[in-house]
Design a protein around this nucleic acid. Sequence first.
DNA 1: AAAATTTGTGCAATCGTTCCCGATTACTTT
DNA 2: AAAGTAATCGGGAACGATTGCACAAATTTT
Lengths: 336, 336
Amino acid sequence: MFEPPTLKDIANALGLSTSTVSRALRDTYEISAKTKKLVFDYAEKINYQPNPNALSLKERKSKSIGVIVSEVANHYFSQAISGIESIAYDRGYHVIITQTHESYAREKINTQHLASRSVDGLLVSLSAETADTEHLKYLHDRGMPIVFFDRVPSDIETHKIIANNEKGAFDATEHLINLGRKKIAHLTSSDHLSISIERLHGYTAALNKYNIPVNPDYIKHCPHGGMFPEETEQAILELINLKDKPDAIFIAGDRLSIGALEVLKKLNISVPKQMTVAGFSNSDVLNLFEYPISSVRQPAFEMGKKATEMLLQLIESKYPVTEFDNKVIDTELFVR
Amino acid sequence: MFEPPTLKDIANALGLSTSTVSRALRDTYEISAKTKKLVFDYAEKINYQPNPNALSLKERKSKSIGVIVSEVANHYFSQAISGIESIAYDRGYHVIITQTHESYAREKINTQHLASRSVDGLLVSLSAETADTEHLKYLHDRGMPIVFFDRVPSDIETHKIIANNEKGAFDATEHLINLGRKKIAHLTSSDHLSISIERLHGYTAALNKYNIPVNPDYIKHCPHGGMFPEETEQAILELINLKDKPDAIFIAGDRLSIGALEVLKKLNISVPKQMTVAGFSNSDVLNLFEYPISSVRQPAFEMGKKATEMLLQLIESKYPVTEFDNKVIDTELFVR
DNA sequence: AAAATTTGTGCAATCGTTCCCGATTACTTT
DNA sequence: AAAGTAATCGGGAACGATTGCACAAATTTT
């Protein structure tokens, strides 16, 4: 089996003690230059790597951070993860990614898992199902550094970073209005999710600005964020079967957009002629359509980077942090 | 700070020794039922979780597996990862995902990283740039269990699992031929990648079957798997500028397909009228197009599951494994 | 030249577990 | 009743690395 070299191996080979070897490798002042060189060269030769578990045990930290997202297949998250990794690896941290698939149960399990794995901190975007954040609050109260991004809770005080969802939603809705649409529906995720609430605000704000009444029948929530196709199909069908059916939909997410477009295609409802669609999406395929749909793009990579920087600041801070950032980053509307 | 309870805490609280507590929790036969219950209940109460670092140090294993893929944003890989996680979590393993972004340098770094993190095994799909597998061979020779999937090396003897790329490519190409196309180009990844070689075989086999000559000018390799848009654009332009320009392209991958479609759209070449496209893809948006493109779908989730099962078998085997599986799973052609 | 200081190194404890040995008590057996 | 055997439990080493302390030798100071 694979037995990596240890300090003891070096010590024995060189006739030194492990403490001397350790100090030499850490370049302490009390070790002679000669001995240091000796140790350095030998360590290099046998490709010595300190045992991370021993280090973690001693230092009580693991140099790794846990990430909880709904699914990596979502373009927003996969881009955010790239941003997270770019910072983490530079700073010597490992990234452990877990997926909730929008399930509250899985979110709890993953949280437990990561905590027991003694990660040094957590980067979390809540699942669509999550209404209760006790599992995270518990950890946070016990000193686990946590930074929330994208989908954030209101009842945990820590660094948070979100896109300007309200403005993004406003822009997208206004865009649909400017196209001459007046009967604009809104398809969104579960109603307790922060992004849902904020995007709904932006949507209604835009309607209000143009004196278009907000029709409650036009607002459809998918409690599982469109994780189950039936959910999306049901919502679309309800919209279509309305007496006064909408002529446009503002869709609040990647997965929902794809699901909705599939249903519309199945129903032979042409986009954008019969139904204009705009929504939040970080997918790069939307503009491949013959009639590409306009979309609000979040700076996912940047958000991932920023969230990681915030988390590392929490982790590496000598004193308990009491002032928390609440960063909002602007989105960009791609008119197509 | 977060100080989880330890065996010693339990031992002190209950007036027992750590060894007794340890044995009680592990349900050893030499501990009385009474003591066991006492310990169990108390451990439950304070929510005791064994320190994974201490365990890893002692047992010389980390209960985690490393995954190396080119990028999680690729639908094939994100689906495969879901398959990997489904098995791993069930068996109590953590999954550490790393991305190469098709870069050989990053693949080496990630391999090093994971090895030093003392993962118990590796699930690897080679990057497009990788021609030399010495970094993996080195680990493998020292006993690190490795299972390759999708993009596999020929010079490392271990479990491997791939899709039936040759047949998939054959089917797709034959499909294009059946549509009446005769001038079929092939856009693919770097020429040393196993999937490229196999898919090229399938492509030529189909052409041969229908007595269509293989035109070398029609075969375009992208050394970085289309990671850089210029690469794809260049290849497409070369095809378009051919005197005898092709009327169809068989594209060998997800990222390449999206890149190629973008270029074609930019060039105002209509798909499928002027250029019919078919290719390997696990994306679920391809059928949203007005004229959806046909694609070969790999059973990514299944492959991830199977690869993980193979890896855990290697990891948990008492004896060195010398017989290696080489599984080939059938693909499915979605005609659209 | 004796004392004080500096320099270079080793010993041993520590982190949280597991596990090999002993050790103690209780229960049988002759 | 003495001896043997289970049945329980504790002591302590080990895993690999760091680090305060001790200690010897070399150097400087008085």
